[in-house]
Design a binder for these strands. Structure first.
Lengths: 196, 196, 196, 196
DNA sequence: CCCTAAACGAGACGGTACGTCCGGTCTTAAT
DNA sequence: ATTAAGACCGGACGTACCGTCTCGTTTAGGG
């Protein structure tokens, strides 16, 4: 569904074009997968000249990463139920559900791969991941503040385990994404509480 | 270091060429990253005609996956120290150390991505991953048999956690691969023992 | 040498900008050749906005043709020595010398090519060429009026020969432009006098 | 009329592809003019990959020049009637008629322009022009050998005049190409015979 | 001992996508 | 109303790879 023409805004960046590009990126990614998104298709679908993409992003992958980050911005809220296990469960369910959406899953993989070769993208992706890590860390630290888990509990490692299972399943077991969150919340709660 | 010429073996497959291709794949992957491995470079580096690659593999990614699997063949032995924690620690240390090698890390990532789009590769990679999962599962189940952990311990999930952390760090924190195994072994031991 | 900034003249056309554009066109043409003149460079070199060029000319080629015509305005005077051969020699020497200047040569070629595809430019260039033809024709006709050449002398064809040699050498033998005029004057004089 | 598929000839150059490209170049030039020939169209029209063009020619202009030269190879024969004037007339008529064909005219102009910026093309075009000049020079020198014209006759200049008129009319008076040759032959004959 | 069939190195081929460059249009904010 | 600035759409360019095809050569192994 190629976007219709829009007026452009003179010597200032055209925000409509920007939005059209990002949303075209998301749509094409969902529709054709990472391989199927080409700059030409992206430009045509957004109703935009190719140069307009390169003027603001350094590569196709940069657009896709940007699209991912913007789409995930309003994604997962940090719950506060007063108990670690239910907090964890809500957070992880929302996270795993979001990742289970095919377009998100593809965008995440694409971004992860792109970041391997491009330091700028690596930095941007790192910021994105750090934000998610920070959220989960804060959630667990509240449990610590409540005295629910001992001071020795290895919180950063638990965070790695949570996101590790997430990415492992994103990559290799997408169908499991719908069912893992609850068990994982339980297991991590057990682990943190039982820290020596 | 382009491979020197070799005689070919008439109407039978030339095993030297096969080996040269696989080792060229590994070298190029370590040297230039996934993006930098092209069929042309691969063929030139192995001192091989391009068609010789396509005669035996279906695509570039298939070669890389094959190279990965062969390089991992002599991989991690399953230890048996009589205690879950030390078994886990040895297994994970060996695993994480192997993944920390740049050439392995890149090969793993490349294979994981390639498997997203190609069912044949997905199957081959799955077999590879399943082998590792089976090894770790067996290790943990011995602890169960010894009565070291309760029957309710979620073994498959613990396996996911272990390999999840591994892949998460492969993708996003390669420098952490050297330091995580011990802590992870401890955390998982705690978790499994404390299962309700 | 980018033109320094100048104040603009409000709602009246800025003649300084016009002059800056034409002279930038000439300079860039001399410096980089026809291919090297782009609207961007032209505007930057003249210290002018791009639209200012398009407001007053229909295309890049129109600017270049305009520049050519203006630079040729003070061109070759028609001599009157009383003898065909010396008149011809003076006229042709001045003409060939002017064409031998690299900036003029390139401007002429550029204009000739541009006129192939654009009727408006063709018309403008035709007017320019016709002026030169008229001058030379008048020069020869004076010789006819003096009885120096017979009535049967093919004057228009001689004019074609003179400008033909000029353009042939502009295109293919620029180094010859400095040496041909005298001999050509002699040859044409011979030819015209000997007409049956 | 895109050329149908053809087998290609392995690791040796495919002559059919070469011929298809050259003939597509000629056709497109005649049909769309120099501006309308793009590498994409050329490749599509010849049923050829784009790289196949770049493998053998350095640029679009090089293809067009090559096409021109090949099409002109069998063009104008050198007549030998035993008299300068009729020899000249036949040669020039054939030459001017060939140039009057729109596709040849456009090819010649395109080649002339391309040669301005590319030394390799300039060399190739020079060789082409030199061949034509040599033919005409030989024709005139036969008249000298027969004693038909004096030793002082400026033969190279006469050759310049002939081709000068040709190119002048190619550029600016294409309609005159059909009518000039006879008069030009007469004028040059007069001029050469009357040399002092 | 020769003859055939397969595998080999080489590299041209048809294609697809890339990222750059430029032409000509449009809008803004300043003069 | 004109200017400098510069973003915009469109589209050609030349490069890099992919996977296929063909060539001429080499070798093993069956007749």
């Amino acid at each position: 569904m190629p976007t219709p023409r829009r007026p452009h805004t003179g010597s200032r960046r055209n925000e409509e074009a920007r939005a059209a590009i990002l949303s075209a990126a998301t749509e094409l990614l969902a529709e054709h997968g990472a391989t199927g998104v080409t700059i030409d298709r992206l430009a045509a679908h957004a109703g935009v000249g190719r140069q307009t993409i390169y003027r603001w992003w350094s590569s196709k992958d940069a657009v896709l990463l940007d699209a991912l980050i913007h789409s995930a911005e309003h994604a997962v809220a940090v719950p506060d139920t007063g108990a670690l296990r239910s907090d964890l469960e809500q957070f992880l369910r929302a996270t795993f559900e979001a990742a289970a959406l095919e377009r998100n899953r593809r965008a995440l993989i694409t971004a992860a791969v792109a970041a391997q070769d491009d330091p700028n993208l690596a930095e941007a992706l790192d910021a994105f991941l750090a934000q998610r890590r920070t959220a989960l860390t804060a959630l667990i630290e509240r449990a610590h503040a409540r005295g629910e888990i001992p001071a020795t509990a290895p919180i950063p490692l638990a965070v790695d385990q949570a996101f590790g299972v997430l990415w492992y399943q994103i990559l290799f077991r997408p169908n499991a994404l719908h069912t893992t969150a609850t068990d994982l919340a339980a297991a991590l709660t057990t682990q943190l509480r039982a820290a020596p």
